[in-house]
């Protein structure tokens, strides 16, 4: 990036322009998310600046049981169950996938990851068609199953990536010392791949917690999640309580992002330390 000392004026102008463009793009990326947050403590019901005064009344609105806290509860229930189910299924599959080679493996991998590439609306439509017939539409179970389909590829990807850097000799060492396969898995493998599993679990949680399309298709009001309620609010009455909910969701996302990033920095640092040894 740094220009040589003998850079011409043209080069300097070009670099300045380039940096200006980048700064504008960064502003574009962050601005809409940051700029709405203060509106959630506005004392007026207008979604605009300057704020006439500061008030917590919109947070008081969203901390009432109905509809916001009920939908938060629904979201937490559905996302937690999804996380458990997706993490178990995805971690087992990733462990299996990385421990053997076979001819159809790429095909199987593509199949296991396919829910990521199929547009949400089609996955939701498919669930809508089938779940109604088997009594799963408008149930928590239905939402959890559909969300697990969407979340599980993220677990498979993150855990597989972690397992690729995992030294299988550790397992062999444990087994040669008499550990049974299950003991070796829980005592050696799992603790070592834990950062990957936790990252995968967080991805799964966020996938479910933020999901809206499946919720639009198969949730009945009793299962309305936070995004589903937010969607109704966006269409019906746009006031700062919507922004308060959005702020809450942003805080949750940022917190979870921080955990995943910290895990990654840690594993990078450990990786570098291991290289130095």
């Amino acid at each position: 990036m740094a220009l040589p000392l003998h850079a011409t004026l043209g080069q300097r102008i070009w670099q300045l322009t380039f940096r200006a463009i980048c700064v504008l793009v960064f502003i574009f990326l962050v601005m809409p998310i940051i700029v709405i947050i203060p509106i959630s403590v506005s004392s007026s019901s207008l979604l605009n600046y300057p704020l006439p005064g500061v008030s917590w009344k919109w947070f008081e609105v969203i901390f009432t049981p109905y509809p916001w806290m009920l939908s938060l509860e629904n979201s937490v229930i559905i996302a937690s169950a999804t996380t458990v189910l997706a993490t178990i299924l995805g971690t087992l599959a990733a462990y299996g996938l990385t421990s053997v080679e076979f001819r159809l493996k790429p095909l199987l991998m593509a199949l296991l990851l396919s829910p990521m590439m199929v547009p949400l609306v089609i996955t939701a439509l498919a669930a809508y068609f089938v779940f109604a017939r088997v009594g799963l539409a408008g149930t928590f179970t239905g939402m959890i199953l559909a969300h697990t389909v969407l979340a599980v590829p993220f677990v498979v990807i993150t855990v597989t990536a972690t397992l690729q850097g995992f030294d299988r000799n550790m397992v062999r060492a444990a087994q040669s010392l008499g550990a049974r396969p299950l003991t070796a898995f829980f005592g050696v493998t799992l603790p070592l791949i834990m950062p990957g599993v936790i990252s995968g679990a967080i991805f799964a949680f966020v996938t479910s917690f933020d999901e809206i399309v499946v919720a639009l298709f198969i949730a009945s009001p009793a299962q309305f999640t936070l995004p589903r309620q937010l969607f109704s609010g966006l269409r019906d009455n746009l006031d700062p309580s919507i922004v308060a909910i959005a702020t809450l969701l942003i805080v949750v996302s940022v917190a979870l992002m921080a955990v995943v990033e910290l895990l990654r920095w840690r594993s990078e640092r450990l990786g570098r330390a291991a290289e130095m040894l």
Partner: peptide, 12 residues
């Protein structure tokens, strides 16, 4: 930050 923020929140 935008990557992790929910799609619906960004749309809103």
């Amino acid at each position: 930050l935008p990557f992790w923020t929910s799609l619906l929140v960004r749309t809103a």
